[in-house]
Design a protein around this nucleic acid. Structure first.
Length: 285
DNA sequence: CGGCACGTCAGT
DNA sequence: ACTGACGTGCCG
């Protein structure tokens, strides 16, 4: 992970690579670690996810970029109330750009998203960033996945806002955001960039010593969200957002604030059929 | 992701 | 009318 090209490396070689890493890489890793609970960044519980990954450190978040999905697997932040205050008075702007730290074979390009039908969805949100430089870094495509517009601009935006409000109220939060890919229905845009089936946001609240995860279906028609435990995220997605947390905290349900209701969702034909089906089952007993 | 439930449809 | 393969949605 610390090496630029982990392709084909086995454990021993990876350790060697770690030992030989230049000072700058060590420094980056150390700075990065501060974004994780207890100084520990997220880990991958599913080994298949680890191929062609690159750990990238930014001013306000760390991200693990995948050359397979050509996007982030997780973005980790430590969001403070002070940062939220500063972000509030900062104009929201930035320029989407390919992340030149990644080799061309492992990164998304602007053209991949053009006319794809998907929004460029931030993992670490631009609205969390307290200064211009940090905000610009959030627009790097290593922090971006293809996201359904109604999700990105609807309930997902509401979740981001609700989480910022929680950070203001409780002082600080550790937040890890990422995509989930269901092998059953994978698609790509631009021939390269994998479209996630869901996007999720894990939140640890030190003030209340609790953690929970928002999970949203990344689809155009009915992009609904729900909450699950950290345990469920680890089992299903294969990312442990908070490895340093005790098992009891990961297993416990924890109420996260509900997002502000987005624009009223209109009822689709599919949804009507579902309602009819449930109604029939109810009548049967 | 995997497991279950359900709907569709083609072939008996 | 029955059956199994297949697709799709939901859930944790």
């Amino acid at each position: 992970m610390f090496c630029r090209r982990p392709r084909g490396l086995r454990i021993g070689l990876a350790l060697l690579c770690l030992a030989l890493a230049p000072d700058r890489a060590w420094g980056q890793a150390a700075a990065c670690a501060a974004f994780g609970v207890g100084g520990v960044l997220p880990t991958l519980a599913r080994p298949a996810l680890a191929v062609r990954t690159h750990l990238l450190c930014n001013r306000a978040y760390a991200v693990l970029a995948s050359g397979v999905s050509r996007g982030p697997l997780w973005s980790a932040e430590h969001l403070t109330a002070a940062a939220v205050e500063a972000a509030r008075s900062l104009p929201r702007r930035g320029v989407f750009a390919a992340d030149q730290r990644l080799p061309p074979s492992d990164r998304a390009e602007i053209e991949d998203f053009r006319r794809s039908g998907y929004d460029r969805g931030h993992m670490a949100p631009s609205g969390d960033m307290a200064d211009d430089a940090a905000q610009q870094e959030s627009f790097l495509l290593s922090n971006i996945v293809p996201q359904a517009g109604d999700l990105n601009r609807g309930i997902w935006a509401g979740i981001e806002e609700a989480v910022r409000n929680l950070a203001r109220r409780d002082g600080d939060l550790y937040i890890v955001t990422g995509p989930a890919f269901h092998a059953r229905d994978l698609s790509r845009i631009g021939g390269h960039v994998l479209v996630p089936t869901s996007t999720w946001k894990a939140v640890y609240d030190p003030a209340r010593n609790g953690a929970g995860v928002y999970v949203c279906r990344n689809r155009a028609v009915r992009p609904t969200c729900n909450e699950v435990t950290v345990d469920t995220l680890i089992r299903v997605v294969g990312v442990d957002p908070f490895p340093a947390l005790p098992d009891a905290v990961k297993a416990a349900r924890f109420d996260l604030p509900h997002p502000d209701a987005g624009p009223a969702e209109r009822r689709t034909r599919r949804q009507m059929r579902e309602i009819e089906r449930l109604w029939r089952r109810w009548l049967k007993g």
